[in-house]
Every structure is written in structure tokens, then in C-alpha cells.
Design a protein around this nucleic acid. Sequence first.
DNA 1: TATGAATGAGGTTTCATTCAT
DNA 2: CATGAATGAAACCTCATTCAT
Lengths: 228, 228, 228, 228
Amino acid sequence: MTAAQGSGRGRTKSTGAPATGRTHDPEGVKRNILEVATREFAAKGYSGARVDEIAAKTATSKRMIYYYFRDKEGLFVAVLEEAYSGIRRIERDLDLGDLPPADALRRLTEFTFDYQNAHPDFVRLVMVENIHDGEHLERSERIQSLNVSVIDVLEAVYRRGVADGVFRAGIETLDLHMTISALSFFNVANRATFSKIFKCDMRSDESLAKRRSQVAETVVRYVRKAAL
Amino acid sequence: MTAAQGSGRGRTKSTGAPATGRTHDPEGVKRNILEVATREFAAKGYSGARVDEIAAKTATSKRMIYYYFRDKEGLFVAVLEEAYSGIRRIERDLDLGDLPPADALRRLTEFTFDYQNAHPDFVRLVMVENIHDGEHLERSERIQSLNVSVIDVLEAVYRRGVADGVFRAGIETLDLHMTISALSFFNVANRATFSKIFKCDMRSDESLAKRRSQVAETVVRYVRKAAL
Amino acid sequence: MTAAQGSGRGRTKSTGAPATGRTHDPEGVKRNILEVATREFAAKGYSGARVDEIAAKTATSKRMIYYYFRDKEGLFVAVLEEAYSGIRRIERDLDLGDLPPADALRRLTEFTFDYQNAHPDFVRLVMVENIHDGEHLERSERIQSLNVSVIDVLEAVYRRGVADGVFRAGIETLDLHMTISALSFFNVANRATFSKIFKCDMRSDESLAKRRSQVAETVVRYVRKAAL
Amino acid sequence: MTAAQGSGRGRTKSTGAPATGRTHDPEGVKRNILEVATREFAAKGYSGARVDEIAAKTATSKRMIYYYFRDKEGLFVAVLEEAYSGIRRIERDLDLGDLPPADALRRLTEFTFDYQNAHPDFVRLVMVENIHDGEHLERSERIQSLNVSVIDVLEAVYRRGVADGVFRAGIETLDLHMTISALSFFNVANRATFSKIFKCDMRSDESLAKRRSQVAETVVRYVRKAAL
DNA sequence: TATGAATGAGGTTTCATTCAT
DNA sequence: CATGAATGAAACCTCATTCAT
């Protein structure tokens, strides 16, 4: 998402053209716009972001934004789509190997926690979209069609755990996922207010590592069968 | 906060004056503005909210907003202050009686969960403020000075539990509080996107009750000493 | 004009009342308002001055401004009247003794120069009024009725000089007065732009003294009969 | 300055397009705005001038003012810059031929007097800027960089006069320039109040011609060596 | 494809002034 | 006399968007 090498990659692939932005590289242009817009929307919210400013930070002009994305809302939807595609793509490739269920669950949780912390823009976009009651998400067919494969992975782990007798039965995968998400999300989403009110640090490597293990522990303990 | 609209004027001691706003009732006017502004900012975010619209939904005029709150930002800060004061006031009066530690922790968690769900505007304002990196909160002396007594309550419960041998030692109160907050907050904050993506309901009494007990269970299991 | 002891004097004379501003001292209140308003109008011009700010810097309230001066324009007219009264009053008491004509003319010029430099607020008010094409001045009966006695003094000096054979004949007093005014006025009125463009100082005692003598010399040379 | 309105558009090279303002003629649009703004600021001062009114008198819209000049202050600075550029450009081309020093000085003075009287807007803008303590002028790099060549011209004339033995030595050019400016400026700047108080005319061709020669005479007499 | 110019609707804020007590 | 509350009109400025080239 925040990996900004997009346009660069496009340019090097297509031709040996100079980086003046004069190359006819629609995909590169679009990607460039999306990257800038992602940062702006994530930083200032939907209404707070300015089309002018997005355009200014772009290698192209304002006209192109409207050309490719129709209007501000279209741009925001595209940004959201990209953001969701990003995490879904990674979730799809998630490989927990053949770890024992508890370890697999722990790793899955830690992965989620790490992803959110590594992609604050994604988290913030989701916050923004929630402030807007998910209306854009609802309208985007592309997002609707994305397969949330993490659910399947989680389901498989959970089942194995129950089969192995280490997880208690009766827990719904979606609820478990919600717990994992909530604990991971909060660390990024509410960082500003929480750390200011409680005068604590939530960004240092140290505190992140500590919290990460707490979150994983919380999840595992919720699922694990009471020690025999 | 949001349940209080209009009641302000009723409370006016002077007379039983009608809600025409013509009475010289500064406090009532301010309260009225704050209530409306709370709803608007919560609904549309800081930039998305319109001073004009807030004024229109008020018993007074736009001019009064500037008279009492200086500018849009001042209004937002006042709204935030009110919102935080609200929860802090309630936390202060929180009484867990002399329940056994685990039950007390459970009840405390459920209380938090319930409060957030009963006050979505508060949750949304906190989201909005986080999108703005907590800058207003930081500037507000009033918020800074509020005592987050829930921490003390939680601390006491936890200590009792450790002393009683039912809670394991080594957990920091603040981390525990973060877990409780994260699980409660998510249910309101991410309701829109989560329920749309996973096609689930997060608002019905039934699902709320279910989730509430899951959250409490999650918290208690994290703290409880592994069953003998 | 800028002598701010007004309200104080009023208070001490009337009663031994405390300086709380609660004393019924209409004249003191009016004087206080006029002093503040003089500074504000002089500093920011008519449109730039704010009634609110004037009121705030006053010992009384905004209501009193409207009570005594009807509206902003009325206040400005009163300020102008005071300012003109001030200089006219002093001009009236001007005593050039029985100096030889040239010395008297020199002293008169220096007096004018000194007065303007000592009363920049007066100069600025005149500038402001000129930007407004003298409409307020025109409307003020009080100002219209003020006797510009400096003209008479100047006339007398000039006549003496002509009679004595030291001044050449044929000069109109008004023209002479204009020259004196122009040279004196400029030093205060155009101080900001002139000193900034030519990077020179126009406020130090030294440069004022130097300029003062130049101005006087200029005036005297214009009038004096070519040296024998 | 004020004589130039409309001519801008006519100068447009592209076509003989009508003055509808629909043509893409940025320079023309800017010039048009500047001309109108010059008149407005000169007439009503900085605070008294209304952006709305300026826009209305323009061939374009209010939005364009902000597009090209950022804000009201930016517009005022641009107006000031234009005004100062105007006089500096003319001063640069000033040619006193090879007149005898006294005649040259006289002509230079009359030129200044005439310029101010022909450009009351310039005079008034300088007054306005002085009321604002020259803050805009100070901030304008363009104005700071303008070369006040009239000083050089004046210097040359004065030196020739001293060399020729017709001017007395020891006078600083800047002081002489100040005298010339003060006498010329006053006639425009203080016209309203002075003529109203002394019930005299300062605008007729006749009185202008008379005053013009008085001013020149004043300047020359100040410099000239006492008759042989 | 690309760009700077242009735009109208609407946003926030301020002002002089008046009212109720 | 005195004060804080209230007001409507209008001020300055910004926004997403479209046009001309």
C-alpha cells in the first residue's frame, strides 16, 4: 500500500523513458495518484483531504484524477479498493506451515497485529470509511468480491485445535477473527488518544513487541481448553 | 450526551419558558449547541461537519456558536471535552460492590462494552480525534486534567484477584485496560465495515449480548490463573 | 489628546470614590472612550478599527459607546473633533513674544513640526479622514466652528516681516501655512514608507532635530527677501 | 495606473477577442483585477475595500482574485508593487536635458508635483500603506528591489549646482528629496481636510499651477546660494 | 494525454449593532 | 448607568469540478 515504488517500477518496465512524467504510462499514473491519495485520505479523512493537494503531490495534474477516477468519491473508493486488495492478497498467501494449532493461532494473530502496525494508512482508511458508515465499501463491487481467506485459514486452525483437543469447542470463527482484529486494530487506530491520555508509548519497537505477545496470548487463552 | 437533547432547556430554573431560545439562558444555549455539534461531528467527522448545518439544527443561530466557542475548532474541542467528561464522570461512580475478583472484572468489562455501545457518538468522536492525531485532546487542559478513575478501579480488582490467588501476577493494569477498551471499542467503531464485509449483524440485542459475554470471557481468561 | 489622565482627574475631583469604574462620571467615561478610540482609529484606520476592541480596552462596556456616541461613525467624528480641538487650543495659546519676524516664523514652524511629531495620532487621524475624503469633518459643526488661529498668528508675523522689509511681499498666508504643514506632516505621516524605502531613520532625536531645523530654514528662506 | 483600464485586453496578441473575459488571457485578467483593486484600495483603504466589490467591478469573478493573488493582502501587495513600479519606471526615464542646475531642480520638483497630482491613487495607496506602518512594503521583495533613480538624478543636479557655485554646499540629497516629496504629496494627500478647513480650492488647474510654482520656488530657494 | 485557467456554490468567520436584565 | 447575550448581514476564503487549448 504505502510501498511507493509503483510508478518507478512501471517506468523501468515500459521503456527507458526519462522520469519526466511524459511517458504514456496510464498504469503508472494511476498508481502514482492512488499512492498519494492513500496518504492524503489516511492522513486527513475523506472531507479533510483536498483534491488540489493530492494533485499537487502527484507527478501529474488534477485533470488526470478526474479522468481516471471520475470524482473525489471515485478516487476514495479506488483507494479503499487498493487498500483492501492489499491485505486480502497477503492473507491469501499466508502460510502457517504445519505448526501445532496453538502456535499457528498465535502466529496468525501476530501476523495480523504486525500487518496493521506496518500499514497504518490501511487502518486509518478503515476508520475513515467507518465514519462514513461504510457507504463506499458497500458500493464497491470489487471489495465485495474479495475473498477474506484469513477466515478460512483461521477456521482450519481452529478445527485442527478442536480435533486435537487443545481448543475448546463452540467458538465461531468470525468471533475469533473479530477479537484478533479488534486487539490489533486498536493499537494503531487509537494510538493518538490512548497514548496521550495514559502518557504511554505505543510505537516503540519494545512496546509493540510486548503488546504483540499480549494480544497473541489473549487470543490463545480465549480458545485454549482449560489446562487439563 | 446524545440522550440529553432538549432536556437542558427544561432544566432551566428561571421559568417554564418555551424552547424558543429567546430566553437569556446561556447555559442552555451552550448545551444545545454542544448536543447538536456532538451529533454532527460524530456523524460526519470534523471536516465533514458543517457549522451552518449545526447552527440550523440548533435553537439559536450560527453567530452564537462563534460567540461561545470562538471557531469550529473551539467547538470541536468543547464537544470532545464534554464527551470525555461524560465517560469519566460515570467511571468515577462505578461501583463493583464486593464481587469476587473475576466477577468484578467481568462486570467492569461488560460495563465498558455497554457504555461504548450506548454512546456511539463518543466512540466516533474518539475515532475522529484519532484521525486528527489527538491534536485537540492534547491542547485541552480540561481533558488532560480528567482523572481516569477506571484505571484505579481496575487496579484494585486485579490486585485483589492476585492476592486471592485467582489472577496470575505480572499483568499491567494499563495493558489490561487496553484490552478491554480495544474489544469494546471495535464493536462500535468498526461496525460498518466489519458487518458489511462479513455480512453479519453487530447491532441487534442478541448479537450484542453474545459479543458482550465473549469479550468479558476473553478478558477474564487472559487474567485468570490456569485452572488448578 | 493622548494625555490619558482624563478619567483619573475626573474621579479625584468628583468624589473620593474607588477606581472601580462604578462612579457616575459621565465625562470621565466619555473621555476614557475617546482616548481609547483615538488610539485605535489612529492605529488601524476607520474601517480597520473594531468597536469590540475599543470597548475591550475601555474601562466601560460597548453599550456606553453607543449610548454616548450613537454609532461607530459618531465615535470617529467625536475623536476627530477632540483631535482638532487639541491642536486648535494650543495654537490659540501660541505666543511668539516679540521676536523679530524671521525668528518668530522659525519658531512657529518649529512649533508645528514639534506638535505633529509629538502627536502622531493626530497626524494619522487626519490621514484617515483624508482617505475618507473629509466627509466626517465636513459634517462636524464643532470642527467647522473652530478658529484656526495659527493663521492669524502667521499673518501677523508675516506682515511684520514685510513691514520691516525682511520678508518679500506677495505671499499668501494660507500658502505659507500649507508649506509649513506639508513639511511637518510628512515627517510623521510618511515615516513608515519613506524610511523603509530609503533605509533612513526619521524618529531619533537626532534626525528629528536635524529635520526640524531644515524645515524651518526652508520656510524662512522662502519668505525672506533676498539678502541685501 | 488609473488611465490604463481596459487597454490591457486590447493589447492581447492572440486575437481581437472581445473584452468578455472569456478569453484565456491571464495577464489581461490580472491587469484588470489590479486596476480595479487599485482604485478600490485607494478610495477606501485596505480594510474599507471589499473583495466582493472589487470582483464585481472586474471582468472576472471573485474566485480569480484568490486564484492569482492568494488573498486580500496578496492583492494589496500586488497593487502596491504596481503603483511603486509605475513611478519608479517614470523616474528612470526622467530627462532633465542639460538645463542649468536651478532650472533642472525646478523642473524636477515640478515633475514630482505633477506626477502626484496626476496619480492620486498612488498617493492614497502610500497613505494607506503608512497607516499600516509599511508592513506590506517591507514584505515585498519586488518593491525593495526597485531602484529609486530619482535620487541619482537629484544628486547629479545638486552637485552640478554646487560646482557651478549656484547651490550652497552641505545639503544631503535625501533631505532635499524629502522636501520635494513632502510639498508635492501634501497637495494630494491632505486635499480633503485642508481645503475644507480653509475653504480653499486645491484641485483647479489654476490653483494647481500656482501651488506648483510655489513648491518649486520653495525648493530652489532652499538650495540656492544667497544672492551674490 | 496533459495543463493552467476558470467557476459557482458554499464554507467559515466577523462586524456593527440591539436587546433583556 | 451598566452588562452579557444575541443577531443578521456581509465579509473573506475554499472546494470540487470543468473548460480551453
